[in-house]
Design a protein around this nucleic acid. Structure first.
Lengths: 194, 194
DNA sequence: TAAACTAGACCGTCCAGACGGTACAGTTCA
DNA sequence: TGAACTGTACCGTCTGGACGGTCTAGTTTA
């Protein structure tokens, strides 16, 4: 792996494990097994390091968005299932950038906002109702919040599937709002990808 | 107001407005209109300042829990409505402590976990279904996440009411689930001890 | 051999916390 | 009653350490 990538990984890991304050240049360099001078060769400043991480997030989110769009059981279910902490590259980078955003870092905040906008759009396309789409987006946000606070793994895979079930009911109730309204068939749910 | 309280207010405000890093002892003292020595008279260390804020959170959450329990339209609706940013004392303290929790601050993390446990219990009592209760809790988490990242006011009061509507549908669909699954009685959940 | 990369000493700044004061409102007691 | 004393509340300065960033001297690779 390139030194640049290991530096980004190290920065990310420090943000996740110990927070923004602990992610000093010295600590990042040490964790990446590089000298401080080496770090500063690749990233001229701490700000450049942050920008590098944000670029990585944009790339990962763009790729994920394509997957989400083409998900067999629809974007919403894909989104909720993938918002639980699974230590995937997107997860790690997203939560790391969220840590940055907490410290009033405008570019980080904008990157998170961009990602959320993309997700919301796809969810809204699927469910057709704004409030419902918002609620689903918030469930995902909540899962990320959890991961950011606790370091992840608060919500198990089974919990995730139960949540997907709740989303099913939520989507069904858009079409059939009243309690005693005719029940619409729940959409066929294929088993998700690997 | 006591100097102690203004110091806690100042600390909180700095955490909210500029993040943990900006909340230095000097900055807190200056914002409270007190000298650094004065601050350290009331709080012997930065850690003691954090502990003071966490105590405040515990008190505010305990009071809010009582209100939530007695809410006319039920705990869940109360919870979602009050999770949108309204700049209330609980909101401010909760999000401030969440900022602290991001920096791997165990007592802050525990305080947030305590609050969430209390809320989840009340919601579960009302809706009777674990996954549904979890989803409602996460919607609230998502709203706080939003507030923590953006500084609040992303979600309007009308949005909040729309979300309450979604929660209505969610709760209704527990009693009358989609498809033809057998309806299981919601487990009777006794109110817990103090 | 030139460019890409690494190393680590060094500098100025900022921060948490320690410390030695000041002011003043009681309380004690001669 | 008034001088001595005590406790609370606050102030301003100082220091040691950590941090971001610079600089220069070296090493590897193409």
């Amino acid at each position: 792996m390139s030194a640049r990538d290991s530096l980004l990984d190290a920065y990310q890991a420090l943000l996740l494990d110990e927070g923004e304050r602990a992610a000093t240049l010295d600590a990042v360099a040490a964790r990446a097994g590089v000298s401080k001078g080496g770090l500063l060769y690749h990233f001229r400043s701490k700000e450049a390091l942050a920008a590098g991480l944000i670029d990585r997030l944009d790339e990962l989110v763009a790729a994920d968005r394509d997957q989400m769009r083409d998900a067999p059981d629809g974007p919403s279910r894909y989104y909720v299932r993938n918002s639980v902490w699974s230590d995937s590259p997107v997860d790690r980078t997203l939560v790391a950038v969220a840590q940055l955003a907490q410290e009033s870092h405008p570019p980080a905040r904008e990157a998170i906002a961009r990602a959320r906008d993309r997700w919301l759009l796809l969810i809204l396309e699927e469910v057709g109702d704004e409030a419902t789409a918002h609620a689903i987006l918030l469930i995902g946000d909540g899962l990320y919040f959890d991961a950011a606070l606790t370091g992840g793994f608060t919500t198990s895979v089974e919990d995730a599937e139960a949540l997907v079930g709740v989303v099913d009911r939520l989507i069904a109730s858009v079409a059939a709002p009243a309690v005693d309204a005719p029940v619409v068939d729940a959409p066929a749910v294929d088993s998700p990808g690997p």
